[in-house]
Design a protein around this nucleic acid. Structure first.
Length: 125
DNA sequence: AACTTGACGAGGG
DNA sequence: CCCCTCGCCAAGT
């Protein structure tokens, strides 16, 4: 007898997403890179659309451009950004957030920017 | 079993 | 900065 594998292809993505703290986000490509092997940004996105909104903080996963990709498909256009803003993340007029400060990395993968180069490219477009 | 779709990403124009 | 093309791979038809 086999119930759903908690370690199925999809579950590995959900499990990682569940670890993202409030006020932080991860990108699809980053998740794919961490899980490695057969994961790509595209498949992670595909898996995410089937996520259980009750148990997975789906809103904390955005695209590499710092914007919310959820638009008019399964969810209201501005819902994701609204939730993230209520968690303390700031978005500029073009709908982008500062990935340099809100992007979260799993333990042991903190990139060290000793120079902290790029600050904002917050151009109000 | 083949073809199409999709919460993406990087590169080029 | 906007638009297009290609690569990527699981799932649905």
């Amino acid at each position: 007898m086999k119930l759903a594998d908690e370690t199925s292809y999809r579950e590995r993505v959900y499990d990682l997403v569940r670890q993202i703290p409030r006020g932080r986000v991860m990108t699809y490509g980053q998740i794919a890179d961490i899980l490695g092997e057969d994961y790509t940004a595209r498949t992670v996105g595909y898996v995410m659309h089937g996520a259980d909104v009750e148990s997975v903080p789906w809103q904390r996963v955005i695209n590499a451009q710092g914007k919310c990709s959820t638009g008019k498909m399964t969810l209201p256009v501005n819902l994701q950004q609204s939730i993230l803003e209520s968690e303390g993340i700031k978005f500029n007029a073009s709908g982008k957030c500062d990935l340099n400060s809100v992007l979260w990395h799993p333990e042991g993968m903190q990139p060290q920017d000793e120079k902290t180069p790029s600050l904002f490219d917050v151009e109000t477009r």
